[in-house]
Design a protein around this nucleic acid. Structure first.
Length: 513
RNA sequence: GCGGCCGUAGUUCAAUGGUAGAACGUCGGGUUGUGGUCCCGAUAACGCGGGUUCGAUCCCCGUCGGUCGCCCCA
């Protein structure tokens, strides 16, 4: 795992040494890792807050588990024959000699915590959610990173099929809210009772058709026959299509369970597609499994990209016991945040989704001269305490530079405090969009800021409603909206809507010092 | 782990077997109390190592990295 790094570092050091005081060696990101820039944050914030909103609405509670766990946890939970464990785990010996790993997925840690802390003794089910980074030492490509983020939900101690359906309901609601059309694919892969029989049948079938299979599938046949089913190789298609299907081999209880999951999906108004050949890569799944794919991967009929799944999950009734707990049924789902953000951006670019709103800046505090600087610092703090978003650059002296800064930050208002204003006990308020500015008594500055920001909001609301109303000429309906909003504003702020000239008396508003 | 394509300023791109240009950005100035436009100036790059060559950023090999695909997965 340290290969590239080591090479790189070695090279860099050798280079840096002879150079002596010359430039230090350049450092850079590890392969498959990404920085998340300020410009990206609105997207992340949106997903994080939406994830929290949906999790909470459906009764899940936040659970954070460590990024590092004993390697054994994952080999036991995920399965030591899976690729995730076999060749993709960031596993290493720590300084104490323990074999530890960066978590490759979220369920294992949650289940470990459930068992370790005796959550069986809590009212069941225990519904938990998490959001955080996962690590897999994979070769990076589209939709795949070595550090990526997942939002996950787990219902522990619940065997009811409604719990599975609920997860799909959360997922489809979430994607609808974001504006990303998805298709839910659902299947059941049975349990320890019925799956072995099916696997045997399938293996026999596949062996019988061995010669028609791709080389890859032939190899897989010996290791994981189920995996042959989701082969994307063209030559496999025919064989797979007429292969025996798990649904026909489900035992009664699995069958009943699956049917009821589907019924509940109807109740939740989740549209889904049966995917008889959907199997999942983690060993712990039983019964229900599902994947949510962006709807557009089905367009054009081409092969479905392998990194397409935006979310996936299923039931894992055996896992808790496998990790040393009492037999406890459970079901869960995980969302791939980076993949979702990619789709979300596409949808925004296509105009089918609304861009996340960036943080706006209410006030920029500009100052000239040392005395003004000091006074501005106090005002800055006062404004901040009133929950305005405020920015300033007290290290800059030139007004020009400060206004440039304000402009770049897209401040709505800039307050300008110079020597003259300090002497007069006034301050300048500049509206950045129009460039109109006004001198007001220093005491009134907070009220004035509040008033102008309220107006600004009204303007934005009006803009929005005009936009939403569409391309037609402004109708009377919209005009009414405008008036309504303004009226509301008036009752609250008692301004006659004099736009830029607020000569209201400052009826003895509380001084603040 | 395997394969394809790619690797030039902070970014997006260009040119060239004799060490490189632009745009945008950034910084400064025009405007020492006024931004978003404009004008002027500055800034800054050939991923690394080796080979071929009188000489390589250009050709070859390797490596690292990026990207896409396979495997696998969110």
């Amino acid at each position: 795992m340290a290969n590239n790094t080591t090479h790189k570092k070695k090279g860099a050091e050798e280079e840096a040494q002879p150079a002596g005081e010359a430039q230090a060696a350049k450092l850079h990101l590890l392969r498959g890792f990404k920085d998340i820039f300020p410009a990206d944050q609105p997207y992340w914030d949106r997903l994080r807050s939406l994830a929290e909103e949906f999790s909470t609405a459906y009764g899940f509670h936040r659970m954070d588990t460590p990024l590092v766990e004993e390697t054994a946890l994952f080999t036991r939970a995920v399965g030591d024959a899976t690729d995730i464990v076999e060749k993709e785990m960031f596993s290493f010996k720590d300084r104490g000699g323990d074999l530890v790993a960066l978590r490759p997925e979220g369920t294992s840690g949650v289940v470990r915590a459930y068992v370790e802390h005796g959550m069986v003794n809590l009212p069941q089910p225990v519904k938990l959610w998490y959001f955080g980074p996962m690590f897999r030492y994979d070769r990076p490509q589209a939709g795949r990173l070595r550090q990526f983020h997942q939002w996950g939900l787990e219902s522990l101690g619940e065997q009811h099929p409604a719990a599975d359906a609920e997860l799909l309901a959360v997922a489809t609601g979430f994607f609808r809210e974001l504006g990303i059309p998805v298709v839910a694919q659902v299947n059941s892969i049975g349990c320890a009772q019925c799956r072995p029989g099916y696997v045997e049948e399938l293996t026999n079938y596949l062996k019988a058709h061995r010669t028609q299979l791709s080389e890859e599938s032939r190899t897989r046949l010996g290791i994981a026959p189920l995996r042959v089913l989701d082969s994307k190789a063209e030559e496999d298609r025919e064989v797979i299509e007429s292969a025996p299907q798990m649904v026909d081999w489900l035992c009664d209880s699995c069958k009943q369970h699956f049917i009821r999951v589907l019924e509940y999906l109807d109740e939740f108004e989740v549209s889904y597609a049966l995917a008889p050949f959907l199997v999942r890569g983690l060993d712990y799944y039983t019964k229900t499994v599902f994947e949510l794919l962006p709807a557009d991967v089905f367009e054009g009929g081409g092969p479905i990209s392998s990194q397409a799944a935006l979310a996936a999950g299923g039931r894992y009734d055996a896992l808790v016991e496998q990790l040393g707990g009492r037999p406890t049924p459970a079901t869960g789902i995980a969302f791939g945040i980076e993949r979702i953000i990619t789709k979300y951006r596409e949808a925004v670019a296509a105009g089918t989704a609304v861009a996340p709103s960036a943080r706006t800046l209410d006030v920029y505090m500009a100052q000239l001269g040392d005395q003004a600087k000091r006074k501005a610092m106090r005002l800055f703090d006062a404004l901040r305490k009133e929950d305005f978003t405020v920015a300033a650059h007290f290290a800059k002296d030139a007004l020009k530079a400060q206004l440039e800064h304000a402009n770049r930050l897209q401040a709505k208002l800039t307050l300008i405090l110079g020597q003259k204003e300090v002497i007069d006990d006034t301050i300048i308020i500049r509206e950045m969009s129009s460039g109109i500015q006004e001198i007001v008594p220093f005491k009134r500055v907070r009220d004035e800021v509040r008033r102008r920001l309220a107006q600004e909001e009204v303007r934005e609301t009006v803009d929005e409603s005009l936009k939403v109303a569409g391309e037609g000429e402004p109708s009377t309906g919209e005009r009414r909206t405008t008036n309504d909003v303004l009226e509301e504003e008036e009752t609250e702020g008692e301004d006659d809507r004099g736009v830029e000239v607020p000569s209201e008396e400052p009826d003895a508003n509380a001084d603040e010092e």
